[in-house]
Design a protein around this nucleic acid. Structure first.
Lengths: 337, 337
DNA sequence: ATGAAAGCGCTAACAT
DNA sequence: ATGTTAGCGCTTTCAT
C-alpha cells in the first residue's frame, strides 16, 4: 500500500511551503493562480487526498450536520430527510442521521453523540416522548445552530419550522362538519403536533356547537396493531359516529379498511379525513381526504436555513418560527357526489 | 464561555499524565480501577467532553459509517436505513447518509466525500444508472469494509446482501400462470434487480410455454407520471393482457387504480402481482399480491455485517454474498374466490 | 501502573 | 504572494 500523500509531500516535491499547498487547495485568494494550478495538478498526479481528521481538528469544523428524527421509516420523515439531504449535500455538507425511536432517552444519547462528534449544526424533530430540552443546551451554549422541525419545543433561541397544526385540525374538522357530520371522533395523540391538531378539532366543534369526543383509548400511537380497539370503540357508541379525523393517513387508511370490513360505508356512514397527504391517501378506495403537509419543502427549507446560519448569511434573530402552508385536499372519503 | 476542558486540564488537576487520563477514559486495562474512578469522576465534575476531531486524527478512525442510497424517500430504502441505523447506533457508530438520486455521477461524488471524510466502512445500494464501479476502488485499496445491498455490482471483493430477484420474479409470474393468466406483461426496469426479476418472469413463461411480452415503453422508471403510457399500452393489445407483474408495489397500486378507472376489473380481467410488500399493498382494494422483501431485516443484517467486519469478528472471505428469503404473499389482486 | 513524548496532517496567525 | 510555525487534543509506543 503506497502511503498516503500529505501536503508536506506536495510541498516538498513542489518546493513550496505546506502553507502554500494548504491555501492553494482551499482556493485561498492570496495565492497566485499559477501556483494554485501547479499545486492542484501535482495533487491530482500524486493522488493526494485531504485528511479530514486533521482538517477538522485544526479548524474545529466538520462540514457535517446532525439530524435526529423519531424514526427513519416513515414516508413523512424520509421525505423531509430527502429534502434536507439534497440541499446540504449541494452546499458541501454531509448529514449524520440518527433516530430516537420516539424515546427521549435515545434522543438525549443521540444529541450527546452529535455534540461530541462536532457537528456544525443540528436539526431535530422531537420524540413523542420528549418533555424537557436540557439535552439541547450544549448546542445553544456553544452557538451551534439548532433547528427544530415539525415536532418542536418552546425554545425561543431556536428556529422552528412547522405547519399550523391547529388550523389544519380546525379545517379538517370543519370540512367534516360542512359535509354534515354531527358526531366526529378524533384519533391521534395528545402531545406536540397532535395536541395542536386536537385543539383545532375541538375549536371547530365548539364553533359549530357540537360536542367533542375523545377517549383515552384513542390516544393511540397510530400503530396499526391498535386498530381493533378503535373499531370496537366506534361500534359501541350509543350515538353513531359519522366522522373521523385521524392524525395520520396511514392509520386512517387502516381505519377505512377495517370499517369496510365491519360493513360501515365510507363516506356514506362515516366520513374520514386523514393527515399528511401520504402517497397512500390517493391510492386507497375511497381515496382519502387529507391535509397536505409539504414535507419535502420543509426539508429543503430546513436545509437552506441551516446553511444560511452556517454561512452567517442571514440574521435569524428576526425569524425564529416559520410556518409552511398546508392545504386541505378533498377526496372521496369525505364527500358524497 | 468557559473554555473546553481537555485531558491536559484533567491531568493537571489530578496530578497525573495526559496519557493516564486518556487511558482511563478509554477503559484501558493497564490502569488501576482507583485511578480510573478518580479520572472519570473529575471528568464528570468538570464537564469534560472528548474532542472527536483530535481522537479521530490520532486514531485515524471516525466511528462513522457511510451509506449511499438511490433515494431516501422510498418506503423500502427508509426501512432498510432504519434497520441499519438501529444496529450500528447500538454498536457506537454514527451513520452518514447520502443519496445518489439514481445518478452515477452523484454516487461518485458521494463516495469520494465519504472516503475523504474517513468513514470506517461504507454501505451502498447502487443508482439505477451505475455501470462502472471504479469509484469504489479507493475503499477496496484501503481495506475499508464495503458492503452492497439490494442493488449490487459484480465485485467479488465485497459482501453483497440481496434477495433472489430472479426466483422472486419467477414465482410471481408462475403464480399468475397458475391463476390462469395466459398473456402476462412485465412492468419495470431492465437493469440490476429489475433485470433479474425480468429474467425470472421470462423463465416462468418459457417453462409454461407462453410468450413473454416486454415493450421498451414499459421500461418505465416506475414513476407514477408514466402510468398513462402503461394503461394505453394495455388497452391497445390485440390479445388482451390478463396478468401484470409490476416490479414495485407503489406502481402496481397506481396501475390498479387506473385500470379500475378504465373499467378493467382486477382480478377478474387482469390479475396483478407487485413487489416489495410495501405497506400500501394491503391497504388498497383489491389488496395486492406481492413479494415480501425483508427490508428491515436486510438493514439489520447489513448493520451487523459491517460491525462484524469492523471488529474483525468474522472472516468474511467465506461469505461474500448473502441472500435473504423472500416470500410470495397472495392477496386479492391475483385470486378469485 | 504510570509518565514522557512523538506524532496524526492540517489551518491560520504572523512574519516577510 | 509565500514561508514559518504554533497549535488543535488525543492516542500510543516506549520507557520506567
Amino acid at each position: 500500500m503506497n502511503k498516503r500523500i500529505t501536503i508536506y509531500d506536495l510541498a516538498k516535491t513542489l518546493k513550496v511551503s505546506p502553507g502554500t499547498v494548504s491555501r492553494s487547495l482551499n482556493n485561498h485568494p492570496s495565492i497566485s493562480d499559477k501556483t494554485k494550478q501547479r499545486v492542484i495538478a501535482k495533487a491530482n498526479e500524486l493522488g493526494y487526498k485531504i485528511n479530514k481528521f486533521a482538517a477538522n481538528l485544526s479548524s474545529q469544523k466538520s462540514n457535517t450536520i446532525g439530524v435526529i428524527v423519531p424514526k427513519l421509516n416513515s414516508n413523512f420523515m424520509s421525505t423531509i430527510l430527502a429534502g434536507i439531504e439534497k440541499v446540504v449535500n449541494e452546499a458541501g455538507y454531509s448529514l449524520i442521521i440518527s433516530q430516537s425511536l420516539e424515546s427521549m432517552e435515545k434522543e438525549k444519547i443521540n444529541s450527546m453523540t452529535h455534540f461530541n462528534s462536532g457537528v456544525d449544526a443540528i436539526l431535530v424533530s422531537l420524540a413523542y416522548d420528549t418533555t424537557d430540552y436540557e439535552h439541547f443546551t450544549p448546542f445553544i451554549k456553544h452557538k451551534i445552530p439548532l433547528i427544530f422541525l415539525d415536532r418542536v419545543p418552546n425554545l425561543p433561541e431556536c428556529l422552528t419550522l412547522i405547519i399550523d397544526n391547529y388550523l389544519a385540525g380546525f379545517e379538517a374538522t370543519e370540512h367534516l362538519i360542512e359535509q354534515g357530520c354531527k358526531n366526529i371522533l378524533y384519533i391521534g395523540g395528545n402531545r406536540n403536533v397532535y395536541l395542536e391538531r386536537f385543539k383545532g378539532y375541538k375549536a371547530a366543534l365548539q364553533k359549530h356547537h357540537l360536542d367533542y369526543r375523545f377517549d383515552d383509548l384513542l390516544e393511540t400511537d397510530l400503530d396499526p396493531k391498535n386498530i381493533d380497539e378503535v373499531i370496537n370503540y366506534i361500534k359501541n357508541q350509543p350515538t353513531p359516529i359519522d366522522g373521523l379525523f385521524v392524525a395520520s393517513d396511514s392509520f386512517a387508511a387502516h381505519c377505512i379498511k377495517e370499517l369496510k370490513k365491519a360493513s360501515f360505508k365510507v363516506p356514506e356512514d362515516i366520513k374520514v379525513v386523514g393527515f399528511n397527504n401520504d402517497p397512500i391517501s390517493e391510492l386507497i378506495s375511497p381515496s382519502l381526504t387529507t391535509i397536505n403537509y409539504p414535507g419535502y419543502e420543509m426539508g429543503v427549507l430546513a436545509g437552506q436555513s441551516v446553511i444560511n446560519q452556517l454561512k452567517g448569511n442571514i440574521d435569524m434573530q428576526a425569524t425564529n418560527s416559520i410556518s409552511l402552508r398546508h392545504e386541505l385536499i378533498i377526496r372521496e372519503s369525505s364527500t358524497i357526489k
